[in-house]
Design a protein around this nucleic acid. Structure first.
Length: 687
DNA sequence: TGCTGCTCAGTTTTT
DNA sequence: CTGAGCAGCA
């Protein structure tokens, strides 16, 4: 990694003022360029506090901060520190703007995660009383799409025949009003609302423009319309904006990313300097040749890039066809085993990449059989665990009693007599008198028609929350401490034990709650170290916000294990050996993108699948093995499969084709090796 | 209120 | 074929 910068990289690093677009091909050292560029600016006397660097994931932000810190440690940067710099995700950047503009936004607020938003939408849907049953998730997606496209509720166009457009038109404004009423923002708001405030309040915008005189954006091809709006406003005056991205790796159009942002950068920021990074430092020539062949055939090129490398060697790319997915998986397992024992490779050198999560299962089974350690990346294992969300809801409610979603979540959990009917009645009162739901609970004694059990429940809840609130805000107790006290007071452990199907399940769920305590304490000590001094309320709000925003949970060092990941999840990672599996029509261009069910945008969607394939190919450093099965069970029925269409864009001399033998026809050699593995496993178990 | 059985759908995912 | 979500029943 200590190579000197190549001329293109140098050019990007030295540039300082005015707009610049860096088209960074896969593996072309883009993170290095960004970090070096920051260092260079600091050397030239730009104050760290004037730099704002935006990414999409917490991981990317942390990595960038880390790498800048390393450079700064090497000295020569006038004692500037990363801490003064704003290196963050779009969302946490938006959050910090909204937090600091509380005069404009009106006080403290909560952030609703997806579950909270879905709850709100379900509630609204039932209140609207539509005759047909609508899928709340679909409505949520539509609203999110509108926000990503920077379309306000009143701007949604009337036309378009889809029933969901119709219902979205009705629900979106109400949803937005409900959020404001709850003093809540959803994830999309963290970007949109900042742009909206900046757009309407020039005085506010001007302050932020003066603060951040240099703006940088990573993975620019993933930005949506709202993010573009935000950037145009922030950089509108000084135009010191540097964006880095790769249109060939644009794979998130389906969640609002708009490739036009990168393709039309010159129009958005006239006079922009454009730099292409085409030298690849990751992959060997045979892998790169395949990557280039795949991306060359794309139908919508504007900036053409051709990657090259000076790396020598590397094995020819392999393309195998297996009789079945089981045989495919068995082959991958065998090969990994073989390369570990014969070639001295380590588990962490391998990745198995697939289009959809369901495909992981077979590979997990095989690796387990082979006794090879692995991890599965992603797979929506968020911290959506009910018991954790319940405890957090108590904390959130203690700080923000307008947070109706949290209130509804725990109103009768653990059961305290506030049944569905009572809650509904309370809701009706709230609506009629213009109180919040919480105020209604506080004033339950003044209401009729509430059963006395529910009345008692409301009083108990009121007492619990009031106490927690006092502990947090007046006595300034730590969140982790209050969380423990709450659980104690609520008898949550008992409740969990009583409602779990088995003692093991109960133990697991309680362990999650306990894990939350640990997570809270760890965060607290980190915050303490940062030594910020604010009011207890603000401090705790910030704290809860960071919990919602960093839901990923600090990932531990993956260790020496094989990586299983979706193609989407693999972006930004690299491995010596990559197995690209399930390269079949219907799986790689996924059937859902092929089907005419989605009426619009067919050719574009397929191009996105091509780029997905390209992303997979470019993950490999030394060896790429592509695989497909000739038949596969589809919805319980066996079906013949055709090879992925993108494979036919690869000249046959670039790949070595082979047949994967059926497990039943394995040679005695392989059987012996498998038996050996089995013995080794038994041996390991014995110890 | 909680469980059981039935129906239906079946990508990708961060914040 | 599987899993999730819901309706209907106890």
């Amino acid at each position: 990694m200590k190579f000197p910068l190549n001329p293109a990289q140098q050019e990007a690093v030295e540039h300082q003022n005015g707009p610049m677009l860096v088209l960074a091909g896969a593996g072309s050292g883009k993170t290095r360029v960004i970090t070096q560029r920051i260092a260079r600016m600091l050397e030239r006397g730009v104050p760290a506090s004037a730099i704002c660097s935006l990414t999409f994931t917490n991981k990317a932000a942390a990595e960038m901060a880390e790498r800048v810190a390393v450079i700064l440690k090497e000295g020569g940067h006038r004692g500037q520190s990363v801490k003064q710099m704003s290196i963050s995700t779009f969302h946490s950047f938006g959050l910090s703007v909204l937090s600091r503009e509380r005069k404009v936004t009106g006080g403290t607020f909560t952030i609703f995660d997806q579950g909270d938003c879905l709850g709100a939408i379900k509630e609204l849907l039932s209140r609207v009383g539509v005759d047909r049953r609508f899928d709340a998730t679909e409505v949520m997606t539509r609203i999110s799409n509108a926000k990503n496209a920077f379309i306000a509720p009143e701007e949604l166009r009337e036309r378009e025949g889809d029933d969901y457009d119709e219902i979205t038109k009705i629900v979106y404004p109400r949803y937005q009003a409900a959020l404001r009423n709850f003093h809540a923002y959803d994830f999309d708001d963290l970007v949109c609302e900042v742009a909206r405030i900046w757009k309407t309040r020039e005085d506010v915008l001007s302050r932020w423009q003066k603060q951040f005189r240099y703006v940088m954006v990573d993975e620019y091809q993933d930005t949506n319309r709202a993010q573009l709006e935000l950037l145009r406003l922030l950089a509108g005056e000084h135009r010191n904006i540097c964006v880095v991205g790769d249109d060939d790796q644009s794979i998130y159009a389906w969640r609002g990313a708009d490739v036009r942002n990168i393709l039309e950068f010159e129009e958005h920021f006239p006079g922009a300097k454009i730099v292409k990074l085409e030298q690849n430092y990751r992959s060997c020539a045979p892998v790169l040749a395949v990557a280039n062949a795949v991306i060359e055939k794309r139908t919508d090129a504007k900036y053409k890039k051709t990657l090259f490398t000076s790396k020598l060697g590397g094995e020819k790319v392999r393309l195998g066809q297996a009789p079945s997915p089981e045989a495919e998986a068995a082959y991958v397992g065998r090969e990994i085993r073989r390369m570990i024992s014969d070639e001295g490779r380590k588990p962490k050198d391998f990745a198995i990449l697939y289009r959809s999560n369901g495909q992981a299962k077979l590979f997990e089974e095989v690796l387990r059989e082979q006794g090879v350690a692995y991890r599965v990346v992603g797979g929506t294992q968020f911290f959506e665990r009910k018991e954790v969300k319940d405890v957090l809801a108590y904390l959130k409610l203690s700080l923000n009693r307008s947070d109706e979603i949290s209130l509804r979540r725990i109103a009768n959990y653990p059961p305290r007599g506030i049944g569905e009917t009572s809650l509904e009645r309370l809701g009706t009162y709230a609506l009629a008198r213009g109180w919040t739901l919480w105020e209604t609970i506080e004033r339950v004694d003044a209401l009729d028609d509430i059963p006395s059990v529910a009345r008692d429940g409301c009083r108990a809840l009121e007492k619990t929350i009031a106490h927690a609130r006092k502990r947090l805000l007046i006595e300034r107790a730590k969140g982790s401490v209050v969380a423990r006290e709450l659980c104690e007071q609520l008898g949550l452990q008992k409740e969990i034990t009583a409602t779990s199907p088995s003692p093991q399940a109960a133990a697991r769920r309680w362990a999650n709650v306990d894990g939350l305590f640990g997570l809270l304490s760890r965060r607290e000590s980190r915050e303490d170290a940062a030594g910020r001094d604010a009011s207890a309320e603000r401090e705790l709000m910030t704290f809860l916000h960071s919990l919602t925003l960093n839901s990923q949970e600090e990932e531990e060092d993956p260790g020496n294990v094989v990586t299983l990941s979706t193609l989407h999840g693999s972006k930004g990672l690299e491995f010596d050996v990559v197995f690209l599996v399930g390269l079949e029509e219907g799986l790689l261009p996924h059937s859902r993108t092929l089907d005419p069910r989605a009426s619009e945008t067919a050719p574009q969607d397929i191009e996105e699948e091509r780029r997905l394939f390209y992303v997979g190919v470019t993950r490999a450093r030394q060896l790429l093995v592509m695989l497909r099965a000739r038949a596969r069970m589809v919805r319980g029925k066996p079906a013949p499969r055709t090879p992925c269409r993108f494979l036919s864009d690869i000249p046959s001399d670039l790949v070595e084709e082979f047949e994967v033998k059926d497990a039943a026809l394995m040679s005695t050699d392989e059987m012996a090796s498998n038996a050996g593995n089995l013995l080794a496993m038994l041996d390991a178990l014995g110890k």
